[in-house]
Simulated scan of single mutants.
Amino acid sequence: MSQAFFTALSGMLTFSGNLDTISNNISNMNTPGFRGSDVFYRNLINSRGVGIGPQILDQNLRFESGDIRQTGNGTNLAISGQGYFILEKDGEYFYTRAGQFTFDNDGVLVDQNSDSRVMGFDENGVLTEINVQDLLTLPPEVTSQINFEGNLSTGDDAHQINDIRVFNEIGEEILVNFNFTNDTANTAGNWLVEVTDENGRVIGNGEVRFGPDGTLLDGFNSVDLTIPADINGTLGTAMDVSLSFGEPGSFSSTTSFSGGTVSTASATIEDGNAAQPFVSINFNEQGEVIIRYANDEEETGAQLALAFFQNENALNQVDGYRFSANSAIDVQMGEPGEDVFGSIAPGSIELSNVELAREFADMIIVQRGYQASSRVMNVANQMIEQLYSNTGG
């Protein structure tokens, strides 16, 4: 009878330990990247082969994916499918499904909770940190071409296009104007082009010529222009700009038809911009950094690296959301969306994989086991008391 007492006590202690695990699972049901645990028992036997109660054998993690919740934060990332983010700190690698990342003051993508660096691939496929410091500003680009389209009416004597912005190599803005004069009286289909700065200073000229059908003639469909270095106090060097009016014989660019006394020709720059600050940093489904600038241009940066393990149970849990792998564990690294690796869900976080209904069911089982063990202990105690009573104390 005394053994029954201690066997029941062993059951109560074991079920109590299981309840601790269930409690931890439930309390972390909204913790990003958390993995729930299951407790497994084993039967204890004495030297005579008689069972003397249970003992907690092991506690295994559940590695199935948790729910993905959108956060709207561009550096919050989740993995839709298999794989782990790779973190590095002090020369040691860690692995996680919790993508609560941010860029630090040096432009390096780091884990918010541990300050570990998030790893990616460089252009050579080598594992490295993701650093956007050099991409936070889009460098200036010189304007090399201005495109024209629309109609220079044969019934119009002159046409002006004013305040077209071009940029030199250091990003300074220069305003230029274009004055077109109908020269058909001297040469059939000919228009003279005069280019001036915002103060009316002539900085270039040329001519464009059209055939009887109103399309550009070969050899007269562009004008080469050199904008001086000292124009309006700018600091940049002289810049060569090509004025492109379109392809000869084409009706899709600049034409010269009868349109009364109104011409519709307009100009747009093909390239060139001042230095542009970034306005947002996000990731795409392939894990690539996408930086958008104030002029709506985009640049693509480094790509996230993911790790895959055939045997996830061999991972060592460092804390609630990070794991480590010893040298004996085979790790496969690759790009999101390739091979076995899942794609990236940008602006999202993967929550824990704890299911509340399952935890409640386990809790009921633990409670019933604890109650039953307690009942056995109570009965054993009553039987011992009865034995003492029958023997006179």
Rank of each mutant, 00 (worst) to 15 (best):
G99A: 00
G99E: 01
Q100W: 01
Q100L: 01
Q100V: 03
F101W: 07
F101H: 07
F101D: 06
T102C: 09
T102E: 14
T102M: 13
T102R: 14
T102H: 13
F103N: 00
F103R: 00
F103Y: 11
N105Y: 11
N105V: 07
D106C: 00
D106N: 09
G107T: 03
G107L: 02
V108S: 00
L109E: 05
L109N: 08
D111H: 00
Q112N: 09
Q112V: 12
Q112K: 14
S114E: 12
S114T: 15
D115Q: 15
S116I: 05
S116M: 10
R117F: 13
R117L: 11
R117K: 15
V118A: 04
V118M: 02
V118N: 02
V118W: 07
M119D: 03
G120C: 01
G120A: 05
G120Y: 05
F121W: 02
F121T: 02
F121L: 03
F121V: 01
D122A: 04
D122L: 03
D122C: 04
D122R: 02
E123Q: 13
E123N: 14
E123M: 11
N124L: 13
N124F: 14
N124C: 05
G125T: 00
G125K: 00
G125E: 04
G125C: 00
V126G: 12
L127I: 13
L127R: 15
T128W: 01
T128R: 04
E129F: 11
E129K: 15
E129M: 12
I130D: 09
I130H: 06
I130P: 06
I130A: 04
N131F: 10
N131C: 06
N131G: 05
V132P: 09
V132N: 09
V132D: 06
V132Y: 14
Q133K: 15
D134A: 13
L135M: 15
L135N: 10
L135V: 00
L135K: 12
L135G: 03
T137A: 13
T137I: 15
T137R: 12
L138Q: 09
L138G: 02
L138W: 07
P139S: 08
P139C: 05
P139V: 08
P139Q: 07
P139L: 11
P140C: 07
P140W: 12
P140I: 12
E141K: 10
V142Y: 08
V142L: 07
T143I: 05
T143L: 09
